[in-house]
Simulated assay, not measured.
Amino acid sequence: MIRIPAFLYTLFISAVLLGCLPGCNSENKEQSAATVDSTKSEGKASTAKKKTIVFFGNSLTAAYGLDDPSQGFAGLIQKKIDSLNLNYKVINAGVSGETTSGGNSRVDWLLKQPLDIFVLELGGNDGLRGIPVSETKKNLQSIIDKVHTKYPEAKLVLAGMQIPPNIGQKYASEFRAVYADLAEKNNITLIPFLLEGVGGEAKLNLPDGIHPTEEGHKILAENVWVRIKDLL
């Protein structure tokens, strides 16, 4: 029988107990490194999969008049998304005073970044300025076409607007019809009237009677959410 020296036997037992037989140190390090790399990869993959919702509009989208723009309806949609752990980020591309003509010119620059959902909220300023309905419709269609061309898989949402009849009943009626017509023609999601429940309600609007208060924006956010939640 071969006798194993006591000190070698002790080393062998220690190695077994510690899980450090020859080569296991490097193996454990490799496994550890692989785990870290895997975690990093998963993290990167998660970030890469983040989808984008763009709210493209005027002062309503920009949350004009609020101390904190994140309290506007677009910001509230982001909070709703985060609370549900949905993998989307909101980009607020609202510019106060924007008309459909201005939006049609600006959208080319915006489309340089990828997007998955495009919410179009323009036209209110056209109506207040009495711009011909045909011009408003033409500009909105152009914006829709540009988004479709650049990102054919993107989902589009059109926020409908209305204007007071005191500007002219015929004009107001034709203006309102633009949004339903475009939504049907392009087969896109329609928010019938973004300001539903807020427009004309003094307590839900700032002193100018046009822009919603913080409470008003909460209602706008719900008007939007019920239409886009199934798209996420």
Score class of each variant (00 low, 15 high):
201 E>Q: 15
192 P>C: 08
40 K>M: 03
20 C>W: 15
45 A>N: 10
2 I>K: 14
160 G>L: 09
194 L>V: 06
72 G>L: 00
110 L>S: 04
94 G>L: 04
195 L>A: 10
119 V>T: 03
183 A>R: 05
229 K>M: 10
163 I>W: 07
82 D>A: 15
214 E>Q: 12
39 T>N: 11
34 A>C: 06
36 V>N: 04
140 L>V: 08
198 V>S: 00
126 D>Q: 07
81 I>C: 02
142 S>N: 13
78 Q>P: 08
171 Y>A: 07
176 R>G: 06
23 G>D: 11
164 P>M: 11
196 E>N: 15
53 I>Q: 05
9 Y>H: 13
114 P>K: 05
195 L>V: 09
117 I>C: 01
33 A>S: 13
133 V>C: 02
111 L>P: 05
136 T>V: 05
102 G>C: 08
77 I>E: 00
88 Y>W: 11
14 S>A: 15
191 I>L: 11
97 G>I: 07
177 A>R: 14
130 G>L: 05
18 L>D: 05
220 L>E: 05
164 P>K: 12
75 G>I: 07
107 V>P: 03
180 A>Y: 12
135 E>P: 10
67 D>A: 15
117 I>L: 08
48 A>L: 14
44 K>I: 15
104 N>S: 15
75 G>W: 06
134 S>I: 14
190 L>E: 01
209 G>A: 07
224 V>Q: 03
96 S>F: 03
7 F>S: 12
167 I>G: 14
82 D>G: 12
65 G>N: 09
146 K>L: 06
53 I>K: 08
217 H>M: 01
98 E>N: 13
224 V>T: 06
177 A>L: 11
110 L>D: 04
37 D>M: 00
195 L>D: 01
175 F>E: 00
218 K>R: 14
183 A>H: 07
224 V>C: 04
117 I>H: 02
167 I>N: 14
130 G>H: 10
201 E>H: 12
73 F>Y: 15
69 P>C: 03
93 A>E: 10
130 G>Q: 09
104 N>M: 13
11 L>R: 13
90 V>H: 01
59 S>V: 05
106 R>I: 11
66 L>D: 06
146 K>Y: 07
10 T>A: 13
208 D>Q: 02
73 F>E: 01
183 A>F: 07
172 A>M: 04
209 G>Q: 06
102 G>S: 10
8 L>E: 13
